[in-house]
Amino acid sequence: MEMLLNAEYLHTQTFWLVVSFVALLAIMWKFVTPMLTETLDARANQIREDLDRAANLKTEAEQMLQTYEKQLKTAQAEAADLVAQARKDAEDLAAKRTKELEAELSRKAEVAAKSIEQAQNRAMEELRKEVVNLTVQATEKVVGSMMDSKTAKKFADEALNELN
C-alpha cells in the first residue's frame, strides 16, 4: 500500500499523461487549428460577401425604384398633357362648330330676309299692276274716255307714292 500512495510514482504517471497531452495539443495546433480557422474565416468571408451582395442588391433595387418613379412621373405628365390637348382640341372644335353654325344661321336668315323682300317686291309689283288697272278702269268710268296706260301708270305711281 505504501507503494500505491507514493507521491513520486504518481507524479511520474501524470508526467507521461502531460507528455501525451502536449503532443496532442501540438498536433492539433499544427494541423487542426489551421483548418478550423480557415473554416471560421471562410464563414466570416461568406457572411461579408452575402452582406455586400445584399447591400448591392438594395442599391440596385432603390435605383430601379427611382427609375420607375421617374418614368411614372413622366407618364403622368404625358397623360396630363394629352388630356389638356384633347380638351383644347375639343374646345376648339366646339368653337369652330358654333361659329359655323352661327354663320349658317345668319346666312339662312339673310336668305330668308331676301326672299321676304323679293316676295314683298313681287307683291308690291302686283299691287301696282292691279292699282294701274283699277285706276285705268276707274278713270274710264269717270272720264268716259280711254286713258293710255302710260298716263295711268303715272297716276298709279303717284297714288302709291302717297301711300308709301
Partner: peptide, 13 residues
Amino acid sequence: ALVPGRLQAFIEM
C-alpha cells in the same frame, strides 16, 4: 458583430 470574428463564428457554429 454582423460579420463574426473567429471566436464569435465558433460560438455561433
